[in-house]
Design a protein around this nucleic acid. Sequence first.
RNA 1: GGCUGGGUGGCAGAGUGGUCAUGCAGCGGUCUGCAACACCGUUUACGCCGGUUCGAUUCCGACCCCAGCCUCCA
Length: 457
Amino acid sequence: MTPLQLFDTYERKVRAFEPLTAGRVGMYACGPTVYNFAHIGNLRTYLFEDILRRVLEFNGYEVHHVMNITDVGHLTSDADSGEDKMELGSKRTGMTAWEMADYYSEAFIADLERLNILMPDVWCKATDHIDEQIAFVEDLETKGYTYRTNDGIYFDSQKLNGYGHLARLDVEGLRQGARVQPGERRFVTDFALWKFSPPGEQRQMEWQSPWGIGFPGWHIECSAMSAKYLGDFFDIHCGGEDHIPIHHTNEIAQTEASRGTRLANFWMHGYFLQVGDAKMAKSDGEFLRLKTVIEKGFDASSYRYFCMTAHYRTQMSFSWDSLQATNTALQRLYQLAYDWGEPGEIASGMLGRFADHINDDLNIPRAIAVIWDMVKADINKADKKATLLEMDKVLGLGFADWRPQEREVPADVMALVEQREQARQSRDFTRADSLRAEVAALGFQIEDTREGPKVTG
RNA sequence: GGCUGGGUGGCAGAGUGGUCAUGCAGCGGUCUGCAACACCGUUUACGCCGGUUCGAUUCCGACCCCAGCCUCCA
């Protein structure tokens, strides 16, 4: 088996993965901001992270998986700052920010469960770690990386050598191309560590700090919480591609300034799902949820499989037709695997090829191609089944538990089926075909097999 | 506008300096009373223009288009 290789955004190359501590992997995944439901594009990223985790476990590592929940927003009491997500969400739903955070956190976790995504070992909420964040900012202040403006404490990105290396930022170009007035910020790439509550306003979420009442900036929660649960330098930090230039760049800046590390040994990013010509933007109001996919008659596992047909590091196009196409393939595979019966011995050649591909920077599309090779290969069914079940530890499609849909066939339908079979036996095919059409109109399909007619719903 | 990444057959999507991705769809066939299922076979590709090379979809350059970020979006 080829040793595991992963692409590291920081170094911009695929390199051998070696855990910092033998046998153990610390993995931090940027979680959701809980102001709305997750859309299927969000979920693609969590599917990528799930595959990453399963591949690490397949390689024998014990994974310590941490995911944050961003439940802090800029909450103001009036409509002026309509940009704020938590505020808008609270207004839209009629819930308090706290209620809304719980509501959408639960909905998010339910989606992950439906997709058979393994749960993190630690869920950490930003609001449960205010003290850690304040301590982190205090440390940065002591080390001289902060300055104060009228609305908050900011990180002085120019004090740091190599700010923006993760994203290969052209800092001077950013300065010239800035579309927003910097205000009291000294430089475009500076960002808030702590924001003050505006005078005279009561926020739903605000806390006491050495700098006054306010709330933490967005980036600080990940630096503070990952340090708490995984240490100052851990194995893998992952998230969506959109985080590369801002969020992860700033996390690295904070941690570099405070702890002297680049936070994680590997930085990994899942790429966007495209729907039609546009990306999925929650701000557009309309976005596609897993719920919608299920309501259209697909299983969550079909969406899981769909995502696995593309490499995590390429943008992928979603359409109902392409989901339908992968669904057809997956249902075929389920039925085939079911018909293979009880598992025998693992076919090591096939499993080896599969493992080589997953270890080659999670090349799941190639790994799945090996499965289709195996379908056609001259290997006995029991061994194919055993091999597939082993592969499914990574794929997570649930081949062991899949059963053909057995819908209760009503007695009147069964009667028609029997009448048709009699008509067939007496070679009255005209009558047989019209009875088949009748049964179809009632929502059941008849397939003639050697064992007689098979009725499916 | 700047920076970062990408453009592959009807669709989705791998990969490679010179023989195959794979799946779905299509087409032909086996099976079937006809179908369905299954199985066998099979067509179509590498954005555009140059360059390097014996040979480029693959390497290099320009151009066009798409995406991300510069607006606390996975």
